[in-house]
Write a protein that binds this DNA or RNA. Sequence first.
DNA 1: GCCTGTTGGTTGAAGCTACAAGTAAGACCG
DNA 2: CGGTCTTACTTGTAGCTTCAACCAACAGGC
Lengths: 159, 159
Amino acid sequence: MTTWLTDEERVAWVRLAAVLELLPGVLDTQLRRDADLSHFEYFVLAMLSEAPERTLRMTSLAARTNATLPRLSHVVRRLEDRGLVRRFPCPQDGRATNAQLTESGWATVEAAAPGHVANVRHQVIDALDAEQVRQLAGITEAILGRIDPDGVVMAPQRN
Amino acid sequence: MTTWLTDEERVAWVRLAAVLELLPGVLDTQLRRDADLSHFEYFVLAMLSEAPERTLRMTSLAARTNATLPRLSHVVRRLEDRGLVRRFPCPQDGRATNAQLTESGWATVEAAAPGHVANVRHQVIDALDAEQVRQLAGITEAILGRIDPDGVVMAPQRN
DNA sequence: GCCTGTTGGTTGAAGCTACAAGTAAGACCG
DNA sequence: CGGTCTTACTTGTAGCTTCAACCAACAGGC
C-alpha cells in the first residue's frame, strides 16, 4: 500500500525538486564563467586550501567532497594537468596518494572565492530571512540524517 | 568588497550544498533499480501522463521539466527507442513536434510511481515534521524566486 | 616466507548533458 | 511573391560521471 503525499507535502517536494534541478546549474555557470571551474572542482580546491599543508589523501578528500574515488581521481588528474594540484605517494602508506594544492591552485581559489560566495548569498541566502536560514539548517540536517546516515559529510572531519 | 557568510548562514549553506550533491543520486538509484529510468526520464513520462491526450509539444514539455530543448530531444529519442513515447509532427504547426505517451509508457509510469513516491517520503518528507514541511515550501519558494525568476517551473502550466 | 583478503587508487568504456551549428517551417513586410 | 527574422527542433561533438575491471600495497594467519 502506498501512502500518497498531502497537498502541502507535494508543494514542498515539487519546489525542492525544482531547486535541485536548477540551483547546481546556476552555481556552475558563475564559476565556469569567472574562474573556469565547475562547482565540484572549486569545492575540491577549497577543501585542500583548508587542510594542513594544503594536502589531503585522496580517500579523505573524496569523503569531504562527497565524491566516489573514480570521480575524484579523474577530476584531480585534470586539475593536475592544469597545474592547480600536485599528487605524490603517501610516505606512511604506499597504497595511498596525497593531493596537494599548488601555489597556482591556491591563487585560483583565492580569486574565485569572493565571487562564488557573493553568488551563493545573492541566489540563496539573501532570498531568505534570518528565521528561514535557521529553519533551512534544521531541515537540511534532518534530510542528511536520512540520505547520509554515516554523516560522512557532516561529521567533524578527522585526518 | 565581499560580504562573507555568518556562521549560521554557512552551516545552512554547507548542508544545502550536501543535499544538492547527494539527493539526486539517491532518487536516481531507486528509479534506476526498480524501473530502469533516470529521475529525469521518469519526470518526463510523468508530465506526459498528466497532460490531455497524454500528449505535449516538445517546447512545453521542456518547460515543465526544466530541460533545454537539445537535452529533451535526446531523452525523448531514447524513450521512443524503448517504445515508451511516440513522436509525430504537430498538425497545427509544421515546425512543432508532439510527444505522446504510449500504452507501454503509461504502464511504466504507473508501475514506477508508488516506489518513487515512497522513496521521496522516506528520504525527505518523513525526515521532517509538519512545521518543517511548511517551512520548506516557503524557503524553496523564496529561492526559486531568485533562480527561476520567470517562474517557468512554478507557473500554472498553460497549454 | 606464503596465502588470502582488504584497502587505496587508477584506468577504460559507456552513457548523459551542454553547447554549437544546422534545418525547416511559420511570420512579417514591402 | 521574395526576403528576412524568428521559432521549434535535431544532430554532432566534447566533457564529465559512473561502472566495472584492474593493480599494487598492506595485514593477518599459518
